[in-house]
Simulated assay, not measured.
Amino acid sequence: MPEERLVVIDTDAGLDDALALFISLRAHKQADIAWRILGITCVHGNTALDNVCVNVTRVVEVAKLSDEIPIFRGADRPLVYRTEKRSSFYHGTDGFGDADFSKIEPRIEHEHAVHALVRLAHEYEGKLTIIAIGPLTNIALAINMDPTFSQSIKELCVMGGNVWGVGNIRACAEFNFWADPESVHVVLESPWRQPILLIPWETCKIEAKMPLEWRTDVLGKVTSSEADMMNAIEEKILSRNTKIHDGWVSCDALVPAVMLSSKITMEVQSHFCRIELNGFHTRGQLVLDRPRLSGEEDNVLAVTKIDLQEYEKMLVWGLYGIDEIDFSMSNHIVFPA
């Protein structure tokens, strides 16, 4: 078995975050997969932080891992400019589609998420994988708190940004990066052990888009508590999804999927990237040095093409739709020549 991957998931707990968490939690529970979740950190983003903490608690309870996976409350606002704009038009006012769930109390550790990130980075020096599927505020705060933080992390894997200037919250900006671009700046400027693995918006929108019928008639027919929750929280958006994406897209779930199986990734691009902070129309856009004029070393490895059938298998597996999957663990990111 490959070396165990030690994982912290940083999330803003919207609809696709839930599916990403279910995939990750199933891998954690499966003894023959070298994947252990050390904690889940909550951050503002798709919904207010209080909702994020409740949503993560709910997911972990459904996965029957409440006694095993610690949950940490993190940043409730961006580093500099506070914004009240959320993704409620897509994720609902509570982040989970305003589904009719009974009220629960969040099960949160006393330790702040940023303190937990710094502590775990040094407890597992050079061994920690961070999967960031929300705004990067918690990660940036950890860097600002401890300048050695980024060098203590084995790998950072992010869903966010764009490589062709296509946005979703703005014409040129993807939501996670737009929600706190100053934090993206801090993260991109930090000296990581290896380039950041990035799942950009265009890869999700183009490569990972599936027919709505696949979501309802295949994934939607899986029988499990996890699948029941996903069907409940996505019920409203599925009823109008053709007006949004002309299909079904689950962005955040692609991050643990490509980390768990190297069969999913078909193409990667290596770039030096910065984030636009000042543009009136382009704030939050990821800027790639395609002509390589900066002379800087590449800091991002972007997944640009995937095997959709392999991704579909992973999604069904994550909701316990199939018992077996041929995992090819990708514990070492392969950089293009």
Rank of each mutant, 00 (worst) to 15 (best):
M1R: 14
E4C: 15
V8S: 03
V8R: 01
D10V: 05
G14V: 09
A18V: 14
L19D: 01
A27F: 06
A27D: 11
H28G: 13
H28N: 15
R36A: 15
I37H: 12
T41S: 07
G45Q: 01
A48M: 10
A48Y: 15
V52R: 00
C53Q: 05
R58A: 02
R58M: 03
D67Y: 10
I69A: 04
F72E: 01
R77F: 06
R77A: 13
L79N: 01
L79F: 09
Y81E: 08
T83G: 09
T93R: 08
G95F: 06
D98I: 02
K103N: 13
E105H: 04
E105Y: 03
E105Q: 07
P106W: 01
E109R: 12
H110C: 10
H112A: 12
V114F: 01
A116V: 11
G126E: 12
K127P: 02
T129F: 15
I130F: 00
I131Q: 14
N138K: 05
A140P: 02
N144T: 07
M145D: 12
P147M: 02
P147C: 03
Q151E: 13
K154A: 15
G161Y: 02
V163M: 13
G165T: 12
G165K: 08
G167W: 09
A173D: 05
E174K: 05
W178R: 06
A179K: 06
V186N: 00
V186G: 01
V187F: 04
E189I: 06
L198R: 03
E202N: 06
L212C: 10
E213P: 00
D217T: 11
G220C: 07
G220A: 04
V222T: 07
A227G: 03
M229E: 06
N231C: 09
K236A: 11
T242N: 10
V249G: 07
V249Y: 00
A253K: 00
L254P: 00
V255K: 05
V255C: 12
I264G: 00
M266N: 08
R274T: 11
R283I: 10
R283Y: 09
G284Q: 03
L286A: 09
D289R: 04
S294K: 05
G295R: 09
E297H: 09
D298N: 14
T304C: 06
I306S: 04
D307T: 00
E310Q: 12
Y311L: 15
G318R: 04
I322Q: 15
E324Y: 15
I325P: 14
S328L: 12
P336Q: 04
